[in-house]
Design a protein around this nucleic acid. Sequence first.
RNA 1: GCCGGCUUAGCUCAGCUGGUAGAGCACCUGAUUUGUAAUCAGGGGGUCGGGGGUUCGAGUCCCUCAGCCGGCACCA
Length: 643
Amino acid sequence: MINVTLPDGAVRELPDGASPMDLAEGISKSLAKKAIIAKVDGREWDLTRPLDGDARVELVTRDQPEALEVIRHDAAHILAQAVQELFPGTQVTIGPAIEDGFYYDFARDEPFSTEDFEAIEKRMAEIVDRDLPFEREVWDRDDAIAHFERIGEKYKAELIRDLPEDEVITIYRQGDWIDLCRGPHLPSTGRIGKSFKLMKVAGAYWRGDHRNAMLQRIYGTAWADDKQLNAHLMRLEEAEKRDHRRVGRAMDLFHMQEEARGQVFWHDKGWTLYRTLENYMRRRLEDAKYEEVKTPSLIDRSLWEKSGHWEKFRENMFTAQTEDGEVLALKPMNCPAHVQIFRSGQKSYRDLPLRMAEFGSCSRYEPSGALHGLMRVRGFVQDDAHIFCLENQIESETASFIELLNSVYADLGFEDFIVKFSDRPDVRSGSDETWDKAEKALKDATEAAGVEMILNPGEGAFYGPKLEFVLRDAIGRDWQCGTLQVDFVLPERLDAEFVGEDNDKHRPVMLHRAILGSFERFIGILIENYAGKFPLWLAPLQVVVATITSEADGYGEEVAATLRKAGLRVKTDFRNEKINYKVREHSVGKVPVIAVVGMKEAENRQVALRFLGEGNKQQEILGLEDAVKQLAESATPPDLKRT
RNA sequence: GCCGGCUUAGCUCAGCUGGUAGAGCACCUGAUUUGUAAUCAGGGGGUCGGGGGUUCGAGUCCCUCAGCCGGCACCA
């Protein structure tokens, strides 16, 4: 007999060789039905896998979030089986559960198309109906390799070969189909249900390496029930409406075109938004004791060679050649230029920390496939700054940077975001000792600031480790916006120095940092976050004064003039149209406030303010002076409200 | 850059197995002076992404280039 301890502390006796399923059935039929997997002493465990002794056992049921991962993983297996049944000769590789779904990578000469999805989904449903038990088997390593080689699954064989020597090779069987897999799985295919849907096909390199073969990845989504599935599909549909490219066109913010790939034509309204954001950032930087500079766009290649960028990023730099053979590069970033300003004249330890900011226009020749609306462009402006400081100032500078970033993000509507810590990459500059020092300094400082971070191994910059502040777009894609990088390398390479207390020359440490990252990307995220319905202070057009009859136009003009005088961005709509028409048009155009003016208002010197909202007509009739006062106040940028 | 898909009016999209292009919205004109999400009537607008080919005939089939979209790779 074995003793099983339940989460509530109760202990149950079960016969030897009993499985978590037996446990569940012993408790209640409905639990046995709802159970997905078990956690045995904290380890994930198949329900049907016999327990190997006394243990703490927890049953994970269908309604728990962890269950979704298992359902999705199972769905990936079923997808692979369906594909192999329908398309013989297709090799399987890997197929994990991911956020909202799963994928499976296949090797096949013929491309899959979304037109194949219907047939594949149908076959998947059949496999669910077959209710095949998932059976876990432990295989000998060499047998497993030989088996997969024999059936022509060279990717699987390679995977097994590369597993650590002591790894237990487990194979999961569903009917006559088997796959190398760590598990766990549901007891049978019937338990998964049919709340899944194939979403898209895409190319993906074997093992994520571009030197390897290109596989075909089929993405799917899977949920515990149809309600969840439909809710997810609905969310996606809603998210699509927030796409910054779509909203940007609809609101006439910007456009892009072939002749200037990866660069933005900012229209009047988009540029107003941009400038509002820039002015806000400028005030925040001034408050935080930064100085602002401006450096050249075209800089001789010799400087890029010194900094190390030429060697590492030459292919991604735009260059220009003069008549006499001089090669210049359009600056892809600002740091070497800032070091030049630091180097001009003498710097003393008394000048440190020196915080040098620039709204720096940068150009990078990004790979064609990487371009993506405003999120990934070739011409962009960073809210860049470099903090030249002493080693013992890294911690306090990191702390105040994180505080500033938090405050800026909160003002712009982002309360939570992910922070990643990226350490030394394989190809890098600087000695291991320098890296040890830089990584420790950044990590300690971040921890001291109380920030939770996710480790992102090997993803640092070539000159130093970095903190990445990641925001999410409407459909869940992550984009790095803010960053903080500790750099002991560039000051050395570019020979930056200051005179210390001891009257000797010393190297400063450089902190590279950005809050928005690039205006382009950040505005893209901002558009999607607000779905174009910006808070009043950011909205490019804040108020439309719309008259009901042309008799009120004179008063309407006066209202508009008064609002403009109070600093608001105002347009008038005196067209010969019904008020319904005007309200609809400006609501669709996401104008935050419509000031409706008819003869009633004109006679009483009032305005009817209608605020952008979900269907419900929120309006307020105010005296002109009160209305102006109220609007001017709510249009005040958050930082100016605080002072 | 790689794999796949897409590209028809300003926008969103129709156009079956090849027989020389349509809708809604937008735009323009006229009428309507209107009270909180679309007033009515009329009108203009497309070398169907570029180039090449097959065919008596190509928006439709084939090749090629470009751009965009979705992933992957890259991201100082």
